[in-house]
Amino acid sequence: MDVIWSAKARITYFKVMDYLQENWTKNEMRQFSQRTEIVIRALKKNPEIFKQSEKHTNIRRAIIDKNNSLFYQVDAVNQKLYLLSFFDNRQNPEKLNLA
């Protein structure tokens, strides 16, 4: 299964990395990066492992860690996994815009 990062996924991923760099240590940055890779590998093997969004049933939410989630879509016909956005779970969910 091919993994395709949207522009928003890239931007939000690097925002998390920037935040970790400014406020935490390189160890936390490395852990977030490793957890993200582990989740993406798991998604490639079993893309439906995580729960569907209640609001958007074609979008799923993967938990990276207690503070961060990854929203993604699966195109099973074309064997593509679209990474849509990373989201800080401590934010107001109303701020989440997957469009």
Rank of each mutant, 00 (worst) to 15 (best):
I4T: 08
S6C: 03
A7N: 08
A9P: 03
I11V: 13
T12E: 13
T12N: 10
T12H: 13
Y13R: 10
F14E: 09
D18C: 03
L20R: 14
E22D: 10
N23H: 15
N23I: 03
W24F: 15
W24L: 12
W24Q: 12
W24E: 14
T25G: 05
T25Y: 05
E28L: 11
M29C: 13
Q31K: 15
Q31C: 12
F32Q: 05
S33I: 04
S33W: 10
Q34P: 00
Q34R: 09
Q34A: 08
R35A: 05
T36C: 12
E37F: 03
I38L: 02
I40Q: 00
I40H: 02
A42D: 04
A42C: 02
K45L: 14
N46F: 12
P47N: 06
P47F: 11
E48N: 12
I49S: 06
I49E: 05
F50E: 02
F50L: 07
K51G: 07
K51I: 13
Q52R: 15
Q52I: 15
Q52F: 13
S53H: 08
E54F: 07
E54L: 10
E54V: 07
K55V: 14
K55Y: 11
H56D: 09
H56F: 13
T57A: 11
N58Q: 14
N58S: 14
I59P: 02
R61I: 02
A62Q: 05
A62C: 05
I63V: 12
I63Q: 08
I64V: 06
D65P: 00
K66D: 14
N67C: 02
N67I: 01
N67M: 05
N68M: 07
S69V: 04
L70R: 04
L70A: 04
Q73G: 08
Q73C: 06
V74I: 15
D75S: 04
A76V: 09
A76F: 09
Q79T: 11
Q79P: 00
L81S: 13
Y82E: 00
L83Q: 04
L83R: 05
L84T: 02
L84I: 15
F86E: 06
F86D: 06
F87M: 10
D88W: 11
N89V: 09
N89S: 10
N89T: 11
R90H: 10
Q91I: 04
Q91M: 10
Q91L: 13
N92F: 11
N92D: 15
N92C: 05
P93V: 05
E94K: 13
K95S: 06
L96I: 09
L96P: 01
A99V: 07
